[in-house]
Structure formats: C-alpha cells, structure tokens
C-alpha cells in the first residue's frame, strides 16, 4: 500500500483510514444538509447534531491516538474516569461507600500504567482478580453492613464496564508482540474502533429502515432483529474492506468482524438495561445528540477485551 501523504510520518494504512473517515464525515454532513433542504424533519435535525458530534469525537480520537502514546494513555484514562463518574452520579450508593469510591477512581492510573508498561499478567489480573477481593474488603473495613452486598457487586462491575474493557485499547499499542513485524497495534486499534462504531451506526440505520421485529422488547424498544442482522452483515463487509489494517486472512477477518458486531450489540444491550434501571434515557448530556460517554462507548467496553484476545489467539498463540 502506498502512502497518500509522503511527508507525514504515519503508516500508509493509518493515512488511508484517516482519509476514509474524513470522506465518510463529509459525505454524511453534505447528505444531511441536502436532505434538510429537501425535506426538513426532526430526524434530520437529530442526525445533523449527531454528525456534528462525530466530527468532534473523530478529531479528538485521531489526535489522541496518533500524536504520542502518552497522549493516548492520558486520553483513555480520562475517558475511563469520565465514564466512572457518570455511573457513580446515577448510582444511589451509601455514604459509607465514599472511601471505596475513591479507591475505584485511583485504580484507573494503576490499570493504565500496567497497560503503558505492557505488563500483560498484571494488567489482566489487576481488576478482575485483585480488585474483586480488595474492594469488598475495603467495604467491610468501612464497618457498615446494611446493603453491603449490593455495593460489593456494583463497584467491581462498574470498574469492569468503565475501566477494564477500555484499557485494552491501550494495551493494543503497547503490547510488545502486537507491535512486531507486519503487525501494528495502532492499526489494530483503529480497526477495532472503526468496526465497532460502524456496527453501531449500521445497526441504527438498518433498524430504522427495515426494523419490524423487536429483539428485546422489555429493555430497548429500538433494537430489532433486522437492525441486528443488518449490522452484523454490514460489519462483515466493512471489516473485509478495512482488512488492510490487520495482517489477518480473509476468513478470520470476516469472523472477527462478526464477533465485534455481536459483542457490540451485547454491550449496547447491557447499558440499555442499566439505563432502564436508573430510569434515564441517556447517562448524561455531554455529547450532543448521543448522550453521555457511556452511551457512546457502551459497545467498545465489551468489544475491546475479546478482540484483543482473539487477535492474540489468531496471530501469536
């Protein structure tokens, strides 16, 4: 593959992705502008707002992921932090949980430090093993046993949702074996995020156009079988064409894209159910048109960890 811009110090593949993202954004913006002129409706206005937010998110993301690894880690750590803050704002926790909440927040720098150093084992066991023991014990130390079981379950789970999954994005670019030869962690990271977000969008579009049969009527009325299957198929096609980012063969490439699509749907459904329990429509109103941080990264938090291990299994094992 040839570089598009010779003078910029980036892989040819990554330059291509940036150009593709820009083309998509420009096309979407123009389409909705024209659509609005021809036939104004609330849906178009919402789409335009969403596209506008996509511009912002893409720029922040590309800047953070390409400038310097340290910027990437800081960006991801803050993303985790904002996500946790969003969850804890809506959770009704006990006053005696406050010290433990501080410990939860403090686990973020540790987790990302392990990712930064590429300490694979420590990174993997820190939250699911170590903190699953330490957090309940810290709760015990606070001395208040009323409703302690719910705090014991909620706090580690919140870390899994907000920190553990997302931090795998960081591990991709620091893991030594993923950055040797023709494998580039950065390209894999871009592939993962591209497919996850494309799947979100395609599920949304297919659901809007073909949607008839509800898949989870009690949790999220917007999700339909048509949207889900359409999303999976579209993701497989997009994954096939974006395959230049990965060193994978065609068959595993398509299978991995399908896995990302299915896992992304699961993450989306999990957060939908959580929101339903909280009784809110969006986690917060930070990103206009999308809702909160967790509304946007819900699918990423479930796709990134399995994606990492699938790649590990296929390429390195």
């Amino acid at each position: 593959m040839k570089k598009i811009f010779d003078f910029i110090d980036l892989n040819a593949e990554i330059q291509w992705v940036i150009v593709i993202i820009l083309i998509i954004l420009i096309t979407a913006t123009l389409t909705f502008q024209i659509w609005k002129k021809v036939k104004p409706s609330n849906l178009v206005d919402e789409m335009m707002l969403r596209t506008k937010s996509w511009w912002g998110m893409c720029f922040i993301f590309l800047f953070a992921s390409l400038v310097h690894p340290i910027v990437t880690y800081l960006g991801l750590a803050f993303l985790s932090f904002f996500t946790l803050r969003e969850i804890y704002t809506l959770l009704k926790l006990r006053d005696s949980d406050r010290t433990v909440l501080l410990a939860c927040y403090l686990s973020i720098p540790f987790q990302y430090y392990f990712a930064f150093q590429g300490w694979y084992t420590m990174f993997l066991i820190f939250i699911p093993v170590f903190l699953f023991i330490i957090i309940p014990f810290l709760l015990v130390l606070s001395g208040d046993t009323t409703d302690i079981i719910s705090s014991m379950c909620i706090l580690p789970t919140s870390l899994m949702l907000g920190v553990f999954g997302i931090s795998h994005l960081g591990l991709l670019i620091s893991f030594p074996e993923m950055n040797t030869g023709n494998i580039s962690g950065k390209a894999l990271l871009l592939f993962l995020i591209f497919i996850t977000e494309a799947n979100d969008i395609m599920q949304f579009i297919c659901g809007k156009i073909f949607g008839k049969h509800k898949i989870l009527p009690n949790v999220s009325p917007n999700k339909t079988w048509e949207g889900f299957i359409g999303g999976v198929i579209c993701s497989m096609i997009i994954g096939y064409f974006m395959g230049f980012l990965t060193p994978l063969e065609t068959l595993p490439l398509i299978l991995i894209s399908a896995c990302i699509a299915i896992l992304g749907f699961m993450g989306d459904a999990i957060i939908s159910a959580v929101k339903r329990d909280f009784g809110v429509k969006d986690m917060s109103d930070v990103i206009p048109g999308h809702g909160g941080y967790l509304d946007r990264i819900d699918s990423l938090s479930t796709t990134s960890s399995p994606f990492f291990h699938l790649i590990y299994f296929l390429l390195l094992a």
Partner: peptide
C-alpha cells in the same frame, strides 16, 4: 465527610 469526590 472529608473526601471530595467527583459527581456530575
């Protein structure tokens, strides 16, 4: 309480 914690 004495710790300041983040909340939106």
């Amino acid at each position: 309480t004495s710790i300041i914690l983040p909340y939106n």
